[in-house]
Design a protein around this nucleic acid. Structure first.
Lengths: 192, 192
DNA sequence: GTCTATAGAAAGATAGAC
DNA sequence: GTCTATCTTTCTATAGAC
């Protein structure tokens, strides 16, 4: 691996970026190699040189997107706010509701669900998220088991919020759902 | 429309049932007419006789599945239990977590999201669900706006629970999420 | 209403020159 | 490493006989 290459100018990198964007928009199964070529401006020969099959391209793109998205969540957690505030901030973060979750939507994607190597980063993303939220909940004094359940519920409200927003075409539906959850959590502060 | 036909023996009906099952398993876009033929045992000529295009078949199948699934939820709400119990029962109902929601998963389906007539039943399903839960919450004394938000949160936890279960391959993840939500709701009983 | 045969387009992938 | 041309398979749909 040569140093001093600007990776963003490599054909491989451009293919990857285009694939990530297309997978976010339409999913893996519904994205064709041809679309990746058109979006990236790279030629067919290069695609199959760098990625012997669509599966290989998908693996690289999904892995990277999962890491990126987990990092986004983690960055919101390195602050010095109290755990309840960090959780609240995660829940109420501004999201592109109608776009859906780049990772969560892959659980309805045939290409992903039928390929363990594509599903693995998806699992890693959600395990990471739940660990992050579960840890904060424990910090705030909630016993481990209950913290795990509550973390799963919080992550689920966000995922389900995306579903509601897309189903109704209304981003407000997602905001309504996370607001409902935030309100429930807030009330917990009174009686622990 | 002639009476006294056993609809379940008609080719049209068998095609519809096969399509519903396949759409539940793989989604609309990923299901081919050929698969519907094989599953139903009906011939190609009959398919295109009853449904001029895949889109027409999808419309009929999705509409019916959405109605069926909403009825399942409604049946759980006609009992004479107090509203909090009905909500709790909805949340903790036994579900095939790894299969995903037949309707919710369609929000990641290209064929559905790009066709208003396919999306409409999906929207109807979720609007119906939220109305059902929101009504019960209002009955239990929660003001309208807050009841809507909380209903959206409850529906979202279920939808997100499916996502978590499929992402991790573990149905327990969904149970954990709904348990976390049920526990939060239970605690609300103490201070309103 | 149902059948078999087939059309036309797009999918994923390969070949072989440069 | 990249290009253009091409192959094979599968998809959605139609044709036309019965």
């Amino acid at each position: 691996m040569r140093l001093e290459h600007n990776k963003h100018s490599d054909a491989r990198e451009q293919l990857l970026v285009a694939a990530q964007a297309l997978f976010a928009e339409a999913g893996v199964a519904a994205t064709t190699p041809r679309q990746v070529l058109e979006r990236s401006g790279i030629g067919q020969g290069s695609l199959y040189h760098h990625f012997p099959s669509k599966r290989d391209l998908a693996r690289a793109a999904v892995e990277r997107t999962a890491q990126e998205q987990l990092q986004v969540a983690e960055r919101g957690f390195i602050g010095d706010q109290p755990p309840r505030e960090r959780i609240r901030a995660y829940l109420l973060r501004d999201r592109d509701a109608l776009a859906g979750c780049r990772i969560g939507r892959l659980t309805s994607d045939q290409a992903v669900m039928s390929d363990a190597s594509l599903l693995e980063p998806v699992e890693g993303y959600f395990s990471g998220l739940i660990d992050l939220l579960g840890g904060a909940l424990e910090e705030s004094g909630i016993p481990r088991d209950r913290a795990q359940d509550r973390a799963a519920a919080i992550v689920s409200v966000v995922q389900g919020g995306y579903v509601l927003a897309r189903a109704t075409g209304d981003p407000e539906r997602m905001r309504s759902a996370v607001r409902g959850m935030a309100e429930l959590l807030e009330r917990q502060q009174h009686d622990q």
